[in-house]
Design a protein around this nucleic acid. Sequence first.
DNA 1: ATACGATTTTTTTTT
DNA 2: AAAATCGTAT
Length: 651
Amino acid sequence: MIDYEEELNSEQRDVVRAKNGPILVIAGAGSGKTRALTYRVAYLIEQGTDPEHILLATFTNKAARSMLSRVETLVDVDLGRLWGGTFHHVGNRILRRHAELLGYERNYSIVDSEDSRQLINTCIRELGISTAKGAFPKPGVVGDVISLSANTGMEIETIITDRYRNFSRCITDILKIALRYRIRKKELNAMDFDDILLNWCALLTDFPDIGEEYAHRFEHILVDEYQDTNIIQAKILDRLAAFHRNLMVVGDDSQSIYSFRGANFAHIASFPEKYPDAQIFKLETNYRSTPEILHLANMSIVNNRHQFEKVLRAVRRKGVRPVFVPVRNVLQQADFVAQRIIELADEGVPLEEIAVLYRAHYHSMELQMELVRRGIPFEIRSGIRFFEQAHIKDVTAFMRIAVNPLDEVAWKRVMKLYNKIGDVTAAKIWDFVSSQDDPLAAVFSEAFLDHVPKAAQSGIRGFRETLRDIRDLSSVNILTEIVDAILDGGYRECMEERYGDGGSREDDLKQLSNFSSDFDSLEEFLSDLALMTSITEEESYRKEDDNHRVVLSSIHQAKGLEWSAVFMIWCSEGMLPLARALREPGGEDEERRLFYVATTRAKDHLYFCHPMTNQSENVWGREAVPSRFIAELVPTDFDPEDLPFEQWAVR
DNA sequence: ATACGATTTTTTTTT
DNA sequence: AAAATCGTAT
């Protein structure tokens, strides 16, 4: 039995033991919402709900896993059948079962953003749209427009007039591309990230019996980070909860930072309108941060209008005031942060309790170099993700061909790995292969070689061998040897040639291979890869004393985490708030929420760095202005005592 | 005609 | 640093 009185505060207890029905939980930063959610799941199971009938939707797969493993220690029940993970993850799981209904094969591929950009590029060229003359958006931008339209349910025309005004001349072309892109994806038997949500929603709506089946199945639905869900996700939830109506959503409108993905914190505000009988709870006690840090965060977020009433109360004892540190330039910034990290470590703060946060990946370049120079171990949680690295994508492209021979993007990627094959030849080979009734069998036919130029023949013969090996291994589900087969099939040399550092990349592939052992089929492995960001989560393959590292992270990726000491670098106008983001509607508020999320990650120490010159602009160095989010904290009747931060001068 | 290397430009955030 | 474009060698 769980001792709820002992382990939860009264706010949390009310949530955990709330009676059934729609429930909205407004949970401030650091108020233990994960704890409440975890105990709620345990409580439901204790009350006799079968885990199979619970759906726990989280923002990352990692969050789901860590919550569920906590639940497992609370109630001694196997949660293997509980539906937990991101919307995309759960959606994929459901769609695999019903893919045929929607006109896909069951073995459909999932294309990530790089693949999708690639495919859009092909569409543009196929349509013969000239991008050279005048300003035409890059394939990536076209992809953003299409994706935003999908995630907000707004027409592409509206998206362009609202946020991409300078491309309004291109609307007809973009519409053509969007249409073609959609057709092409279907031909490739592939879904992009948005399709997973859209198709899931369509499945529940257009096939009432299936919608009902799932609505009956999920007795309880719990949603974390509700402020970052978009309209399609909200619609999916409405359908799934239509029968039992036990929908608990947890979120904080002040921490909504994903509007670029169609998230809209207005959803959370309108939840009570949609569910008039909803019970509303608030978690307002903050256990994480010192009163000083919380005070600063509160002072900042009140500058945003349109938010839920809530006051975060600190329970921790008095600590030190946050510090604002103007520095001369990026180099001095890197120097200061590194120096201060060493001092904190000397004071007894473990390195893994220190984080450096920034708005955009490239903001951390100089710091990385400085940390390397000083031998301070660190871990980067931003930038190119594990599965997006070229060599990982190369290897998985081989696998994708074996699983879904219609995957054009994978085909072309693999073909171009071989010498003497570029865009044109790859397209020719693909044209031949895709025109055959059985594309895989065609590879082994004599006719296949006729479509390959002489110079590339030997490499392509190797490809046939490799593909045969992959198919043989996957048919008996020996996944761990597939990577070796690809490496031995000539990819090892190819990798060395193309990327230089073959050794460390081969290590990555070893890791990928180890990871594959957890899966029952190649198909399942691939779709999970596409929906995941990193492999290192909770994996304890690392050496014991290797866990002490400073974390470098984008603010977005820092969501939900906490550290004793947090450094925010580049707190300058143009960088935070990011100039580009300010141009979006509602941009300033969203940037301020980012600032809020970042500050509330800190438990004890908080530092804001502001480089006063921005060298990257030109050689002379341009004046940089402190971030408005810092400046606005200074009261008009200035009294140093009232300042929520103190200011340091460095050297 | 095609492949591939050099050059230029441009950086948000993520499933 | 990576992507897109441009120019040259095969």
